[in-house]
Amino acid sequence: MVKISKFDAADYLKTPEAIAAYLTEAFATDDAAYICAALDTIARAKGMTSVAKETGLSRESLYKSFSGSSKPEFDTVRKVINSFGVKLVAEPAESKTA
Protein backbone atom coordinates (compact mmCIF):
# COMPACT_ATOMS: atom_id res chain seq x y z
CA MET A 1 0.00 0.00 0.00
CA VAL A 2 1.29 3.44 -0.93
CA LYS A 3 1.44 6.00 1.84
CA ILE A 4 0.88 9.62 1.01
CA SER A 5 1.25 12.65 3.19
CA LYS A 6 -1.05 15.63 3.42
CA PHE A 7 0.01 18.56 1.24
CA ASP A 8 0.98 21.68 3.16
CA ALA A 9 1.97 24.79 1.19
CA ALA A 10 3.96 25.96 4.23
CA ASP A 11 6.58 23.35 3.35
CA TYR A 12 7.38 25.24 0.14
CA LEU A 13 7.40 28.84 1.36
CA LYS A 14 11.09 29.15 2.17
CA THR A 15 12.11 32.31 0.30
CA PRO A 16 10.74 35.85 0.11
CA GLU A 17 10.16 35.28 -3.63
CA ALA A 18 8.00 32.21 -2.98
CA ILE A 19 6.13 34.03 -0.23
CA ALA A 20 5.51 37.06 -2.47
CA ALA A 21 4.19 34.88 -5.29
CA TYR A 22 1.91 32.97 -2.90
CA LEU A 23 0.54 36.21 -1.40
CA THR A 24 0.05 37.79 -4.82
CA GLU A 25 -2.08 34.83 -5.88
CA ALA A 26 -4.07 35.03 -2.64
CA PHE A 27 -4.71 38.77 -3.09
CA ALA A 28 -5.80 38.15 -6.68
CA THR A 29 -8.74 36.07 -5.39
CA ASP A 30 -10.17 39.13 -3.57
CA ASP A 31 -11.44 36.67 -0.96
CA ALA A 32 -10.71 37.89 2.60
CA ALA A 33 -10.98 34.40 4.14
CA TYR A 34 -8.59 32.96 1.56
CA ILE A 35 -6.11 35.80 2.12
CA CYS A 36 -6.22 35.19 5.89
CA ALA A 37 -5.63 31.49 5.29
CA ALA A 38 -2.62 32.35 3.11
CA LEU A 39 -1.22 34.66 5.79
CA ASP A 40 -1.67 31.88 8.34
CA THR A 41 0.11 29.38 6.07
CA ILE A 42 3.06 31.73 5.59
CA ALA A 43 3.23 32.47 9.32
CA ARG A 44 3.38 28.73 10.01
CA ALA A 45 6.14 28.39 7.40
CA LYS A 46 8.15 31.16 9.07
CA GLY A 47 7.34 29.91 12.56
CA MET A 48 4.54 31.49 14.54
CA THR A 49 6.86 32.26 17.47
CA SER A 50 9.29 34.04 15.16
CA VAL A 51 6.49 36.08 13.55
CA ALA A 52 5.14 36.96 17.00
CA LYS A 53 8.55 38.22 18.12
CA GLU A 54 9.10 40.28 14.96
CA THR A 55 5.66 41.89 15.08
CA GLY A 56 5.32 42.39 18.82
CA LEU A 57 2.05 40.45 18.75
CA SER A 58 1.28 37.35 20.77
CA ARG A 59 1.10 33.92 19.12
CA GLU A 60 -2.46 33.60 20.38
CA SER A 61 -3.40 36.91 18.77
CA LEU A 62 -1.89 35.78 15.47
CA TYR A 63 -3.73 32.46 15.53
CA LYS A 64 -6.98 34.25 16.30
CA SER A 65 -6.43 36.92 13.62
CA PHE A 66 -5.94 34.41 10.83
CA SER A 67 -8.29 31.65 11.97
CA GLY A 68 -10.98 32.74 9.54
CA SER A 69 -13.46 33.52 12.29
CA SER A 70 -12.31 37.11 12.73
CA LYS A 71 -11.19 39.98 10.54
CA PRO A 72 -7.68 41.15 11.40
CA GLU A 73 -6.96 44.86 11.59
CA PHE A 74 -4.88 46.34 8.78
CA ASP A 75 -2.04 47.20 11.17
CA THR A 76 -1.80 43.53 12.15
CA VAL A 77 -1.72 42.46 8.49
CA ARG A 78 0.90 45.11 7.70
CA LYS A 79 3.17 44.02 10.56
CA VAL A 80 2.83 40.35 9.67
CA ILE A 81 3.57 40.90 5.97
CA ASN A 82 6.63 42.97 6.88
CA SER A 83 7.85 40.14 9.11
CA PHE A 84 7.72 37.82 6.07
CA GLY A 85 10.39 39.88 4.31
CA VAL A 86 8.00 41.10 1.62
CA LYS A 87 6.18 44.37 1.07
CA LEU A 88 2.78 45.45 -0.15
CA VAL A 89 2.75 47.32 -3.45
CA ALA A 90 -0.02 48.81 -5.53
CA GLU A 91 -0.34 48.59 -9.27
CA PRO A 92 -3.04 49.75 -11.65
CA ALA A 93 -5.92 47.36 -12.09
CA GLU A 94 -6.42 45.97 -15.56
CA SER A 95 -8.78 48.05 -17.65
CA LYS A 96 -12.16 46.39 -18.21
CA THR A 97 -12.53 48.09 -21.60
CA ALA A 98 -9.46 46.57 -23.23
Rank of each mutant, 00 (worst) to 15 (best):
E17F: 13
E17C: 15
E17N: 11
E17Y: 08
E17W: 02
A18D: 11
A18L: 03
A18R: 11
A18K: 02
A18I: 00
A18Y: 00
I19K: 07
I19M: 06
I19T: 15
I19E: 02
I19Q: 02
A20K: 12
A20W: 02
A20V: 09
A20L: 05
A20F: 09
A21R: 15
A21Y: 11
A21E: 14
Y22V: 10
Y22L: 07
L23P: 02
L23W: 01
L23Q: 08
T24P: 02
T24F: 04
E25L: 08
E25S: 12
E25D: 11
E25N: 07
E25T: 10
A26F: 15
F27H: 07
F27S: 08
F27C: 13
A28W: 01
A28L: 12
A28C: 04
A28F: 14
T29Q: 12
T29E: 05
T29Y: 15
D30S: 01
D30F: 15
D30H: 13
D30M: 11
D30W: 08
D31Q: 03
D31G: 05
D31T: 07
D31R: 14
D31P: 12
D31I: 04
A32N: 05
A32I: 05
A32Y: 07
A32M: 05
A32H: 12
A32S: 15
A32E: 10
A32F: 04
A32D: 09
A33C: 13
A33S: 04
A33M: 05
Y34E: 10
Y34C: 05
Y34F: 09
Y34I: 10
Y34R: 07
Y34V: 14
I35C: 07
I35R: 10
C36S: 15
C36F: 03
A37N: 11
A37Y: 03
A37P: 00
A37M: 05
A37K: 09
A37V: 05
L39H: 14
L39C: 13
L39M: 07
L39Q: 14
L39D: 11
D40K: 09
T41L: 00
T41H: 00
T41Y: 01
T41K: 02
T41R: 02
T41G: 05
T41N: 06
I42G: 04
I42D: 00
I42P: 00
I42S: 01
A43D: 00
R44A: 15
R44I: 15
R44Q: 13
R44D: 12
R44T: 13
A45S: 07
A45N: 07
K46S: 12
K46R: 15
K46D: 14
K46G: 09
G47W: 01
G47R: 06
G47D: 03
G47T: 09
G47Q: 02
M48Q: 06
M48W: 03
M48I: 06
T49V: 07
T49I: 14
T49K: 03
T49N: 09
T49P: 00
S50F: 12
S50G: 02
V51G: 12
V51E: 01
V51I: 08
V51D: 04
